[in-house]
C-alpha cells in the first residue's frame, strides 16, 4: 500500500471551474475542427459556433486560474523568472503546471484567432453570402489549435497525478479521464447550443460522438478506480459524500451510452445534455475535493 504524507494544497472551486472550462474549451475547439474538416457543408455553421464558444471559455480559464493564485497580480511569474539575477522565461518540461501555462497561452491565441474569423464569417452568413468555406490554411491552423486544445483538456489531470497527494498521485488515468470527459461534455454542449443550426443528421452524429466519448470516459473511470485500488487508495476518494458523487457521475454516463446503443435518436436532448455536463463537473469535484481532507 502506498503511503502519502503530503498536505492538501487547497485547490477548490476556482481550480475545479478552471479544469471544467478547460475541458469544454479544448473539446469544443476539437469538435469544431472535426466538423470543419470532415463534416458536411451544412456542418460548417456548427463548426463556427464551436470556435465562437471556445474562446470565451478559454478566457474564463485564465480568470479562474488567476483568481485562484495567492497573488493574482503575479500570474505572469509563471512565465517570466523574477528571481533576482536570473531573468528569462520559466520553462520546466517536467512540471505539467509549467507546460500547461504555456499551452493555455498558446491555445488562447489559437482560439482567439478562430473566434475572430468565425465571427466574421458568421456575419457574412447572416448577410446571405453563399461561399463560406474556410481557406485551406484555416484548416491547418485549426488542427494545430486542436492539438493544443486536447493538451489543455488533459494536462489538468496530469497536474494532479504529478504530485505526492493521495488519490491524485496514485492514478495515472486522471489526464485520460479529463480529456475523455471534456470531449463528452463538449459534444453535449454543442448539441444543445447548436440545436437551431443542426439538422437531424448532425444531431444524430453528435449524439453518437458523445456516446463514444462517454464510453471512453467509462473506460478511463474504470482505470482510475483500478489504479486506486492497486495503490490501496480507494478509501481516500470514496469517503463521506463522495461515493454518492461517484455514483451520480456513473449515472450521468447512461444517456450518452444509451444513445450509442439505440439507432433512433434519443429523446430529451436538452436534459440529457445537462445531465452529461453536470456529470463531468461532478467528476472533477469528486477527484479534486475527495483527495483533500
Amino acid at each position: 500500500m502506498t503511503e502519502h504524507f503530503a498536505a492538501a494544497p487547497g485547490w477548490e472551486w476556482w481550480i475545479t471551474l478552471y479544469f471544467f472550462s478547460a475541458g469544454l474549451a479544448g473539446g469544443l475547439y476539437v469538435l469544431a475542427t472535426i466538423f470543419r474538416l470532415r463534416g458536411t457543408v451544412r456542418d460548417e455553421s456548427l463548426a463556427r459556433m464551436g470556435f465562437i464558444w471556445a474562446f470565451p471559455l478559454v478566457v474564463l480559464c485564465g480568470i479562474f486560474l488567476t483568481v485562484d493564485l495567492g497573488k493574482p497580480l503575479d500570474f505572469w511569474h509563471m512565465m517570466i523568472n523574477t528571481t533576482p539575477g536570473a531573468g528569462g522565461l520559466n520553462w520546466k518540461p517536467w512540471s505539467p503546471i509549467s507546460i500547461g501555462t504555456w499551452a493555455l497561452l498558446l491555445f488562447s491565441i489559437f482560439s482567439f484567432v478562430a473566434f475572430v474569423f468565425a465571427s466574421m464569417v458568421e456575419r457574412r452568413a447572416r448577410a446571405g453570402e453563399a461561399d463560406l468555406s474556410p481557406p485551406g490554411f484555416a484548416k491547418v491552423f485549426n488542427v494545430i489549435g486542436s492539438a493544443l486544445g486536447l493538451f489543455l483538456a488533459s494536462y489538468t489531470g496530469v497536474v494532479l497525478s504529478v504530485s505526492n497527494q493521495w488519490v491524485w498521485s496514485d492514478s495515472w488515468a486522471i489526464g485520460a479521464l479529463f480529456v475523455a470527459s471534456g470531449l463528452s461534455a463538449s459534444a453535449a454542449l454543442m448539441a444543445w447550443l447548436g440545436r437551431s443550426r443542426a439538422d437531424a443528421s448532425t444531431e444524430a452524429r453528435l449524439q453518437r460522438a458523445d456516446g463514444y466519448f462517454a464510453l471512453l470516459e467509462l473506460v478511463a473511470l474504470v482505470l482510475f478506480f483500478v489504479t486506486l485500488a492497486m495503490a490501496g487508495a480507494l478509501g481516500h476518494t470514496l469517503h463521506g459524500i463522495y461515493w454518492v458523487l461517484w455514483i451520480l457521475v456513473v449515472l450521468s454516463l447512461i444517456p450518452p451510452l444509451r444513445a450509442l446503443g439505440a439507432r433512433a435518436q434519443a429523446a430529451g436532448g436538452a436534459l440529457s445534455a445537462l445531465v452529461v455536463i453536470a456529470g463531468v463537473l461532478l467528476m472533477r469535484i469528486a477527484v479534486i475535493f475527495s483527495a483533500q481532507y
Binding site: P9, W11, G70, M78, T82, S95, L160, S163, Q165
Partner: peptide, 12 residues
C-alpha cells in the same frame, strides 16, 4: 517570486 499556485504543497 512565489505567486501562491500551491503546486509545491501537493508535491512535498
Amino acid at each position: 517570486v512565489c505567486n501562491g499556485c500551491r503546486d509545491c504543497i501537493s508535491a512535498c
